[in-house]
Design a binder for these strands. Structure first.
Length: 264
DNA sequence: ATGCCTGCGGTTCGCAGA
């Protein structure tokens, strides 16, 4: 079973990239970010035609998240419970995994997240980022107590450490890499999550985002900010992690590429 | 030091992204 995250930077601009990738990679569950459209404008039919159930939490112009699933899903939350938010950055659903010989299978809880960028820091946008992360952390604490298979997947807008940027010194004062940002991510992880990518390698130089500007892709000036956090019950089934960086070389690409993990 | 590039809204330049 493959679970993926992909910040598409406008679903309407990227629907053909997305459907090509869905057909090729055949992920079972996908969390999308930066839809930049309202639910009525989401290209649902094209995705359903590939065998996916679709749950969206859209917004005009900015933000917007969705979960695609080949398994039946029930949406639990749009927005972090208890966190008043004008911006569509969180969607949570429970997928019913198939059991053996038609028996009812177990549940897999999936949280799709799009963390605020937070720049400029300090300032109100950075305060919002930290408040969002604090609210998510408190909610995730309750979810872990359920002891389910649980994946929090999305664009975290956090560079976890210096291995995760081509030029880490350029990000030192940025909201994506400030010590307080990294500490906030650690507080979430330390509840009991594992970064799927870091469970498979200690290597640097693996990125999920390259800016459109200044030839960042051609220079491999990237950062790793799209992450899959796995609960203990999920990480014990982790087999493989991949980053589909070739997507960044396509015509009119998103500035992010899909990151995925395979669970048994 | 700044902009570089892309998408959106709504008209053509400002804002946001990271």
């Amino acid at each position: 079973m493959i679970i993926a995250t992909f910040n598409v930077n406008s679903i309407r601009q990227r629907i053909e990239h997305l459907t090509r990738w869905l057909a090729a990679r055949a992920p079972d569950i996908v969390c999308l970010q930066e839809l930049k459209c309202q639910d009525e404008a989401f290209p649902r039919a094209e995705i359903e035609a590939l065998g996916y159930n679709v749950a969206t939490h859209g917004q005009k112009t900015f933000n917007g998240v969705a979960i695609l699933s080949k398994f039946p899903i029930e949406v639990e939350h749009r927005g972090i419970p208890g966190f008043e938010d004008e911006q569509a950055r969180y969607i949570e659903a429970v997928a019913s995994l198939p059991g053996k010989d038609g028996a009812p299978g177990e549940a897999l809880r999936v949280c799709g997240v799009y963390f605020p960028n937070g720049n400029p820091a300090p300032g109100p946008k950075y305060d919002y980022k930290l408040a969002f992360m604090a609210a998510l952390t408190e909610h995730a604490r309750g979810l872990l107590a359920l002891e389910e298979k649980l994946v929090i997947a999305g664009d975290y807008n956090i560079i976890p450490d210096s291995r995760d940027a081509k030029f880490p010194e350029l990000w030192a004062a940025d909201a994506l890499a400030l010590p307080e940002s990294r500490a906030a991510l650690k507080r979430l992880e330390n509840l009991g999550f594992t970064d799927a990518f870091r469970a498979t390698t200690d290597a640097g130089g693996h990125y999920s985002f390259w800016d459109y500007q200044a030839g960042a892709w051609q220079r491999n000036n990237g950062i790793r900010i799209d992450h899959l956090l796995l609960s203990p019950r999920a990480v014990e089934t982790l087999v493989e992690v991949g980053i589909d960086k070739e997507m960044r070389a396509e015509e009119k690409p998103s500035d992010h590429v899909p990151v995925w993990c395979r669970l048994t």
